[in-house]
């Protein structure tokens, strides 16, 4: 029988894509519908907080925690600027962010809090918020993807968040925003002609997803290094280490709600039901 080692107050966890196509266009209906369902499922457990690790928020000076209590503004994606704007205005659970940062520091990780007017919120975070927090009623915690973090650091960062959540007692939904294989088509395409950039990428995406669907999350973690070499996943898929650090690497299966290409990249919507 699958078992969860996850803190009881963590109700669900998700792996979701960060491509703006899924928030600003209707060209990828299967992934979009799955994203909508994931958001509804998340809200059905009435979380006190949504925790997001975004592979599109890159940092180099340690691990960053958003600590502005109310980030707001307009974001335009650097590449997909013609798709339109993301207007954002959401709440950050600054006390939980601070607690998680303190625990990360206690593990020897370099961290920084980010509280600056106009700080650019990344596309991946905003795509997730559109579906998981459409009315921005739920406070969020956002952490960056440190370019230099290895497996050990990423897991320690996740464990810090898991410990902070456990200590806070807040019911939580945890999100890892990432692409799987991350090779784009480099020319204009129609969404109906979209496909994973290579057969090899597709094969490796499916290998990873198969393990996740079987609840073999430790095996999936063991595969990350090869996956990173073979399929060029976004930020080497190191956020999966973070996610498993938060969840305690449970042998709980992730339900695959959808898998498909976005402009050549591989994308999946995965839902872990943990403590419902």
């Amino acid at each position: 029988m699958p078992s969860s080692t996850t803190a009881e107050n963590i109700k669900k966890a998700f792996i979701v894509p960060g491509q703006p196509h899924l928030a600003l266009t209707d060209g990828w209906p299967e992934l979009t519908q799955a994203f909508k369902k994931a958001g509804e499922d998340a809200r059905s457990v009435c979380p006190d907080v949504i925790v997001i690790y975004s592979a599109q928020w890159l940092s180099v000076l340690g691990h960053l925690f958003q600590s502005d209590p109310n980030p707001k503004g307009v974001h335009v994606d650097g590449n997909w600027h013609a798709m339109g704007d993301f207007e954002f205005n959401f709440k950050v659970d600054t006390s939980l962010a601070k607690l998680a940062e303190e625990k990360a520091q206690a593990k020897g990780l370099a961290t920084k809090s980010v509280h600056y007017e106009g700080f650019p919120i990344d596309t991946g975070t905003l795509v997730a918020l559109k579906y998981f927090n459409p009315d921005n009623s739920i406070p969020v915690v956002i952490v960056s993807s440190n370019v230099y973090a290895d497996k050990e650091d990423s897991m320690a960062l996740g464990e810090s968040m898991g410990e902070a959540l456990r200590e806070s007692g807040k019911t939580a939904v945890v999100i890892f925003s990432t692409a799987l294989s991350h090779r784009f088509m480099t020319e204009e395409i129609q969404s109906t002609d979209d496909r994973i950039a290579s057969e090899q990428d597709d094969e490796w995406n499916r290998k990873m997803l198969d393990l996740i669907q079987l609840g073999k999350n430790q095996d999936a973690m063991d595969l990350v290094e090869d996956f990173a070499q073979k399929a060029n996943p976004e930020m080497m898929f190191k956020g999966f280490y973070w996610l498993m650090g938060v969840l305690g690497t449970p042998n709980v299966p992730g339900e695959l709600l959808a898998y498909g290409p976005v402009w050549g990249t591989g994308n999946a919507v995965v839902e872990y039901s943990l403590n419902n």
């Binding site: 928020w57 890159l58 940092s59 590449n79 600027h81 600056y116 007017e117 106009g118 700080f119 650019p120 990344d122 784009f184 088509m185 480099t186 020319e187 204009e188 402009w263």
Partner: peptide
């Protein structure tokens, strides 16, 4: 990732914060 892009708005203004 898709092509070479050129700024093509007559005036651009705002606050740019280095991430």
């Amino acid at each position: 990732v898709v092509g070479h892009h050129f700024l093509d708005v007559p005036k651009l203004k705002g606050l740019s914060v280095d991430p």
